[in-house]
Every structure is written in C-alpha cells, then in structure tokens.
Amino acid sequence: MKQPVILFALLVLCRCAVAQETIKQAPAGFDAIQASIPHGKIDSVMYPSKTVGNDRRMLIYTPPGYSKKKKYPVLYLLHGIGGDEKEWLNGGSPQVILDNLYKDKKVEPMIVVMPNGRAMKDDRAGGNVFEPARVEAFATFEKDLLNDLIPFVEKNYPVLTDREHRAIAGLSMGGGQSLNFGLGNLDKFAWVGGFSSAPNTKAPEVLIPDPAAAKAQLKLLWISCGDKDDLIRFSERTHDYLVQHQVPHIYHIEPGVHDFKVWKNGLYLFSQLIFKPVDLSAW
C-alpha cells in the first residue's frame, strides 16, 4: 500500500508546483479596438498646481456609460521616466484595454487619471530625462498629487473621496512613485500597484516601516515585473520584505523585459482586482 500512497503524494505535489508556476496572461486581442462595443472617453485637462506654480496637463479616461449623476472610484495611473501624461495612451492603449474589460463586465466602473509625474515647470519628456532636477521632480510630484491634482479631480468630477475608492499604480519610474506615494500615504490609498518598479522605489523598510498598519489598511498591494527585466531586483527586495513581515500582496512575475508588453498585462490584471473583494489565494 505504501507505493500507491507515495505515488499519489508525488502527483499532488507536482500538480501544486505546476499551479504555482502558472503565468497569468491577458488573452489575444485584449488590447485590440472593438468598434461594435461601447467606448469610454479620454479628455486632456489642465489643473492649477500651487506646488509647481503653473497649470499642468493630465489625461482623464471616463468609462462607457459615464454619468455625472453617479459616483466613481479613481485610479491614478503613472508613467515612466522618459514619458509624460501621454505615455500610457501612446504605448499602452489603456482606454482600449478597459473598454474591452467593461464589455465583459470584468472591471468596476472607474475614472482613470493619467497625469504628468514630472512636477516641474518644464515637464516635457524630451531632453536629458536623467538630469538630477528632472529626476527630483518625480519625487516632488507627491506634493502635487496630494495637494493639487486629487483635490481638483474631486472638485470637478463625480468621484468617491475615501481611501477605499482611490488607487494608484504605474510603470517603471511611475511604479516606484506608486509604491512610494501609496504606501507612504495609507490614509489616502487602499489599492497600490507597481509594474516593473524602478530604482526610485524606496527601500522596503522605508516603504513599510509598520507592516501591521499596511496589513490592516491595504485592500491590495500588487507588484509585477518581467522575469528578464534588469530592474527586477527592486521588485524582489520589496516582495521578500513583505513575505518576511507577512504583509499580504500579489507578486506576479511573467516572461518579459522592461516594456509595454509587461505593463499592459499588469494593467489588464490589476484593473480587474481593484474596487472589489480580492481573493489572494487565487494567486
């Protein structure tokens, strides 16, 4: 009797190992325009920034069927070091991804704000993007976001204003910003996502000095990266710290490098999880 029992146990272990290694990928066509379905709308909007000292530009996506009579949660979606408020639009087609998800009833209706995360008067994406002043402007954006951008959105759009209905996520430099600002302001954000987060990501013990508070307040902490990404170590060290301190989160590593293939998949998956109950055991 021992041999069948041993074989059964090995079979179960093998199946578990395969399940744990399953890569979640968006299906083919997830980012292809479907002309016959309802579409959301993207507007370019200016808002006054006391932090920077001038008006700044952002893009705002409102979902299909948008109504000013309804209140919506908000996702703040941030770009990388070489981009601006149009980077997601030009490289990631977030409006197409979300339109298709709405068609399949896989996401909660939400407003998506895509700002320029380089908080300085000359916030264009050109020039030497690694110049110290331009890099520092990404850190300055935290003040602009909290003190200028969010208040403007909440004054001018029908949005829910509690932390449970506010999410922040981004790619690369914007992923680092999202972890830094989201985890650094748990009173403001309950949903936080970093896609291929860059070296601007603070050390884990600085990001999460109080693991118990993070555990109690976060609805979802998402960290994803391509397995061939040279920056994966920044995601790994955060994940390792979270595991060590038993902070629930999703750590999603998929085949890929530092590019929009990975970031679009991150948005596809993350957007389906926010503003609703999350079953971490499925991951």
Rank of each mutant, 00 (worst) to 15 (best):
residue 3 Q to E: 14
residue 4 P to S: 08
residue 4 P to A: 11
residue 6 I to K: 13
residue 13 L to F: 13
residue 14 C to Q: 00
residue 15 R to F: 13
residue 16 C to Y: 11
residue 23 I to R: 10
residue 25 Q to N: 09
residue 29 G to R: 07
residue 32 A to L: 11
residue 33 I to A: 11
residue 33 I to W: 05
residue 38 P to T: 09
residue 40 G to R: 02
residue 41 K to A: 10
residue 43 D to M: 03
residue 46 M to V: 07
residue 48 P to T: 10
residue 49 S to Y: 13
residue 53 G to F: 12
residue 55 D to Q: 14
residue 59 L to M: 11
residue 62 T to N: 07
residue 64 P to A: 13
residue 71 K to P: 00
residue 73 P to E: 08
residue 74 V to F: 08
residue 84 D to M: 03
residue 85 E to P: 00
residue 85 E to V: 04
residue 86 K to F: 09
residue 90 N to G: 01
residue 91 G to W: 06
residue 100 N to M: 09
residue 103 K to D: 12
residue 103 K to M: 00
residue 111 I to D: 10
residue 114 M to L: 14
residue 116 N to R: 07
residue 117 G to Y: 04
residue 118 R to A: 10
residue 120 M to Y: 03
residue 123 D to K: 12
residue 132 P to E: 10
residue 134 R to Y: 13
residue 139 A to T: 14
residue 140 T to H: 14
residue 140 T to N: 14
residue 141 F to P: 01
residue 141 F to M: 08
residue 144 D to M: 05
residue 151 P to Q: 12
residue 155 K to M: 05
residue 156 N to Y: 08
residue 158 P to G: 08
residue 159 V to P: 02
residue 160 L to P: 00
residue 163 R to D: 04
residue 165 H to C: 03
residue 166 R to S: 01
residue 166 R to E: 00
residue 167 A to T: 03
residue 170 G to Y: 04
residue 174 G to A: 11
residue 176 G to E: 02
residue 179 L to S: 12
residue 180 N to Q: 05
residue 180 N to M: 05
residue 187 D to H: 02
residue 190 A to W: 01
residue 190 A to I: 01
residue 196 S to G: 14
residue 196 S to I: 11
residue 203 A to T: 12
residue 205 E to K: 15
residue 205 E to W: 11
residue 209 P to S: 06
residue 210 D to N: 15
residue 214 A to Q: 07
residue 216 A to G: 10
residue 216 A to V: 02
residue 220 L to S: 07
residue 222 W to Q: 02
residue 225 C to R: 02
residue 226 G to D: 07
residue 229 D to H: 06
residue 234 F to S: 04
residue 236 E to Q: 15
residue 236 E to M: 10
residue 238 T to Y: 02
residue 246 Q to R: 13
residue 250 I to P: 00
residue 250 I to Y: 08
residue 254 E to V: 11
residue 255 P to T: 07
residue 256 G to D: 03
residue 262 V to R: 04
residue 262 V to D: 02
residue 264 K to L: 02
residue 266 G to Q: 03
residue 267 L to R: 10
residue 269 L to M: 09
residue 269 L to Q: 12
residue 270 F to A: 05
residue 272 Q to P: 08
residue 272 Q to H: 06
residue 274 I to W: 10
residue 281 S to D: 15
residue 282 A to Y: 05
